[in-house]
Nucleic acid binder design. Structure first.
Lengths: 205, 205, 205, 205
DNA sequence: GATGAATGAGAATTCATTCAT
DNA sequence: TATGAATGAATTCTCATTCAT
């Protein structure tokens, strides 16, 4: 039975995570202390340790939660893919849409007290990378993808994804479709395939 | 004559930077304290503060120093480019070679006590990004590049560069040429142009 | 029931104040550090900061405590006064007796590592001065006192009180009655009214 | 011959004292550091120690300088006195005028980072008190003053002087004559002799 | 399980003072 | 004598963590 006890536990955990998300995205990861997180909660300091061992652990939990939400969507998208185009496009569209939906989790990366950007590397996220890797290896095995360096291929997805996402979030309105179109085009056909854009040229003037 | 006095100052600054590079790459940025840096030096604690205000400042100094060394090389390479191929290839080759040469500065990104990767954002590095942006805008203006979204273009260079560099450094021997070839190919022709590679397929098995 | 928890808090606060009183009167205000105060306690260093923010704050708390004890007595004495003589005499007697009773709080003023005397200016003490001022203004309004400069009147009370108190404390036995008699006489009738004293003349020889 | 060497020394000493006066009156005694004083100078830190051992010493030098200027004037005034009235009045007039002239030296007492007032006790000042004491003892011996407690008498002069001076400085315009008149009247005839003042009554309303 | 005060290690930083130049 | 960087002891204060209630 999940009873009242269970419910409170779940609530407290959620409250801590919620507070942490807030604090991290305000102060940045480095500057945030466990105290800050507790203070943003109406729980006592000791209670924190019934749920997490350290700020690292909460941070990972946040990232993992996000990854946990995104990973199945990415996976499913890729599984459904029948062509490379679908594989690549599906991955990027899903990724950029997820980022746009959960801006705050992503914001931690950017808002930072130090002049330093952080990027996450939690088990869940690594698992996500590994899944991507596995799917790519599979795709190569199936002859869908040419036999290229899988590590670099993963790196290309990841690097393009995170970096472009950052620019995407700086804009208003946020346009995950456009970001995905750009990344996909580059991936599929190189710079020649990129969508043309007048504004960019003007910027250059 | 300023002589010995000046020399000592220069030496101390260098010693601190050197120690900091070491400590950062061993402990990671987050776990490093000013004390750690001082201890890795034979200077007194107070002396640190004659040169830097905080670990943030040393960190930036290190990044800036690196960026300062790499930027002109990148710039020159791009200036010399007569074709897109040269532009892209020159950029990536130079970048990956620089990374390979200065592994330690780059290592800070990876070895990290927390489950977190950091990426640098110092003025010098941002300046480097801005130069790339300007050069790309120029190239678009000159008709060398098609008129695409410059921000995303920069993001693509940066994302591919840093992420692939990371994988490159994990390997032995480190192969900047190979990394550059991969990134360049992807950038110029998309996945179809990527160099085929047997090993990758086997890894996946 | 709040019980032991509350009690411990009260005890700790008292312990810190007690220790601070001791240390201040031994080392003087300027030379005292928070460490000194903590060391005079069997509490941990961090505990200090659960109660006070700085040595300034403890110092003020001590002064305030003293003032809080003395103020009502002074006030009552003055309220009860039906003549100027009673007003002045009552004020000085009460003041010098309070000083004599709480020598240690007053001692901070004198024992000082630097060649400097400190005088207190905490809210409570200022409030005490203000009360005196108000009572004097009232007395003037009631026609009890002639209409003179109230600020200077307050200054006269305060200046005479604190400075004579200092000499009083140097003597053995401490004689608050004598000090009060002197101050009162001067205040009421000027030097001519002062109590004659043979010893003083001899001292001068 | 005082030569250039001598001159520079004198200049440096003066520069330090001048800077110290400034800094003390801005930051207050407690918060002032030797560094602050040096910084307010165009001398090097080491040079400070050719002239003074510590901030305490500079502070005393400042006070002493002031006392040295005021003491002879006070003394002379009292020597010339033929009556008690002249003795008391001369002392207070001279004192309050000196304070008004050298506001800044006196300001140290008041402007203070901590909520604490300091009062000085340097050898020169103590010497000034002792001179007053001796002169009073002499006056008593000569039958000019009645035989009262000399210590308390000194305390009365000092207490009235410094405390009233403080109020005097808060006002605009600064009126040493008025302050002296008040103190003198109180001293000579008690509260009944005090100069009446309309404003004070209104304040009380 | 929740609470929140106590703990004390340890980080950052300052500052008086020295001493080679 | 002046300089000003180096020194390192000393201080303030924070913070993760524990544990009695």
């Amino acid at each position: 039975m999940s009873g009242k006890r269970e419910q409170t536990k779940k609530n407290n955990r959620t409250a801590i995570l919620e507070a942490a998300r807030d604090v991290f995205s305000r102060l940045g990861y480095g500057a945030t202390t466990v105290r800050d997180i507790i203070r943003a909660t109406d729980l006592a300091s000791g209670t924190f340790y019934n749920y997490f061992k350290s700020k690292e652990e909460v941070f990972e939990a946040i990232q993992d939660e996000t990854a946990l939400r995104v990973r199945p969507r990415l996976r499913e998208e890729r599984k459904r893919a029948r062509t490379i185009d679908e594989f690549v496009s599906g991955t990027f569209v899903t990724f950029f849409e997820s980022v746009a939906e959960d801006r705050r989790a992503f914001a931690v990366i950017r808002r930072n007290a130090d002049a330093i950007r952080i990027r996450m590397d939690t088990p869940e996220i690594i698992a996500g990378f590994d899944e991507l890797r596995a799917d790519l290896a599979q795709a190569i095995g199936d002859g869908l993808f040419p036999p290229v360096d899988v590590d670099f291929l993963v790196a290309s997805f990841v690097g393009l994804g995170f970096e472009i996402a950052e620019y995407m979030l700086k804009r208003d309105p946020i346009d995950p479709q456009g970001a995905a179109a750009f990344a996909t085009a580059l991936f599929l056909g190189g710079y020649k395939a990129l969508p043309h854009c007048v504004a960019a040229t003007q910027d250059a003037a």
